Every structure is written in structure tokens, then in C-alpha cells.
Simulated scan of single mutants.
Amino acid sequence: MTLEQESYKRIIENLHDGLYFVDKNRVITYWNKAAEEISGFSADEVVGKSCADNILTHVDSEGNSICKGRCPLAATIADGQPRETEVYMHHKAGHRIPVSVRVNTLTDNDGNIIGGVELFTDISSQAASALRVKELEKMALLDNLTQLPNRNYIESELEKRFEEKKRFDVPFGLLFMDIDHFKVFNDTHGHDVGDEVLKFVAETFTANARPFDLFGRWGGEEFLGIIRNVDGENLGMIGDRIRQLVGNSYIMHQDKKLHVTISIGATLVEENDTIDKIIKRADTLLYKSKESGRNCLTMG
């Protein structure tokens, strides 16, 4: 390596701005130290992965994902035009960071586009007030106990999934889930213990969900999962895996392991469905699971 190359490497490694390179398939090939510091993701965690896999899950100011369909880096690789924008990057710890993004192409010696480069700057100090407003909005869409999306959030997400189905024919399914005998559990062990159960069930959903699926609390002990880009077989497999994981989990109370099970109704979106229709169908299937002895999944 020449001195010039060494100097170049040292400069980009010590930039205050995050910098990463991708190939034409948007697979990340380089990730500098500032990118690690700003995002919380080490180079080992992201190099070799596609940014289209929603590693950083960039969203716009309205919370819409831009990683698939509206990615400025993908657009620049396609047309060769540099772009600038502001987005919200997902930090490894879970929160959102506002970043100013500048993208350009990477070319070979003949001028052929072989990938792209993105430089991003943490602008959180500039956007602190706006972020506080966003957090307040977010709080209104989250269930206080479980920190899952609440009913309003779920209904909003369903509207997006119906629009996605209409525009791009992307299928989705619902898992309508209910904790079995939860009233008896509450009466036996108390509401505080019941709350702990609701939280561990919610954590089981979120810890085992695919990145593009959503699980929320519909109300009481009822939960709803919106499973994107899925067929009937996979919907059933995902639902059964969740059911088994909940059934094999427990909390400790007075030196005893306390278990619960869930019943599930699973259904795929159909032509001419509405939000009310698909939820009612999933709810009916859930009660068939209850009638079948609970701790099972009914597909329909």
C-alpha cells in the first residue's frame, strides 16, 4: 500500500461523519469508525450485509421506511445523480437518530458505476425539539404496559398493508392471539403478576418477530400480529412457533414457575377484504381454537 493510500485510509477512518460503501447490490463493503459510533453497529455486524435488509431501517420524518423503494442510495446507483436528504437512522440500542445523508456513486477507472457511498452526519442536537415531539406522538401509539403498538397503531399499520397489497400485490396475514384462561390466572395470582405475564408474552413476540412484521396489543389479553409477505404455510409456521415459545416460557413467582398458553386465529388477506372483515375472520378463528381446547392455532 502506498503512502497516499495509507493517508487516504487514515482520513476516512477518522472522519467525524459516518461513511460507508456499498456495491451495486447495496451490500455494505466498508463501514468507518464514525459510522460505528453514530449507529452503535460495529463494522463486523454490517459489512457483508445489504442495507436493503433494513439493518439501519432508515425512516423519513413521517415514520415511513425508505429502505425499500425510496432509498436515495439505490436511486443514485441507478441514475448516477448525487442526493442529499435527512432521515432517521435506527441505533443498535433501539432509538432513532436524525442524520443528514449525502450519497454519491463509486466508479471504476473507466467511469462505470460499481456501487455507492453514503456520508451521514448526526444532527440530533439540531433536531432535539422535533424528536421530543416525535416521541410524544410515539407514546400515544404505544401500550403503556407492554410497550407494544396499541390498537390505534395497529389499525394505522393495517391501512398501510392494505395499500401495499393494492399497489404492489404484497400479501400479508393476521395472527389474532389471546392468552388462555387469563381471568383465572389474574384471580389466582393477582393483577400485578398478570401484568408481568402480559409483558413477557409481549417480549416473546418482539424478540422473535421478523424485522418487517408487527405485533401489537389489541386490548386486554388479546394481541394481533401483522405478518408481511407470507403464504398460508409460513403464516401457520410463524404462528405455531410463537405459540410454542410462549408456552415454553415462564415467570418466577414465590419460587414457582408460572406458565401460560395462547390460542391463535390465523388468516391471509383476501380480495375485497377490509380491516373490519379480516379482523372479524381472525377473531372467529381464534374462538375456534378456544373451542378446540386452547393452546392451538386455527387457520382459515
Rank of each mutant, 00 (worst) to 15 (best):
V117G: 00
A93K: 13
L174A: 07
G48T: 11
L119F: 08
N109K: 15
H259S: 08
G216D: 09
A282S: 13
H181R: 14
S124R: 03
N234T: 00
F223T: 10
I12L: 10
E62V: 01
E221V: 06
D110Q: 14
K165M: 12
D17E: 15
D23W: 10
R217S: 01
E233H: 08
H259I: 00
Q147R: 14
I11G: 10
T29H: 11
E271S: 09
I264L: 12
L245V: 01
T105V: 15
C296P: 11
T284K: 15
S156Y: 05
C51G: 07
V184G: 01
V170K: 14
E13M: 11
V117M: 14
L174Y: 04
D192G: 12
D108M: 13
D187R: 01
V193Y: 07
Q81C: 02
N248T: 07
A93C: 00
L56M: 09
S156P: 08
L258E: 05
R83S: 09
L297R: 11
Q81P: 02
L19M: 11
D283E: 03
G300K: 01
D231K: 07
K166G: 04
L15F: 10
V22W: 04
A74K: 12
N32Q: 14
F200S: 09
L286Q: 08
D180T: 10
S125R: 14
I279E: 04
Y250P: 01
Q254H: 14
F176P: 00
L286R: 00
N32M: 08
D169W: 09
R26Q: 15
N64S: 04
L131W: 02
L158C: 05
F212I: 10
F205N: 05
F120P: 05
E86R: 13
G293P: 12
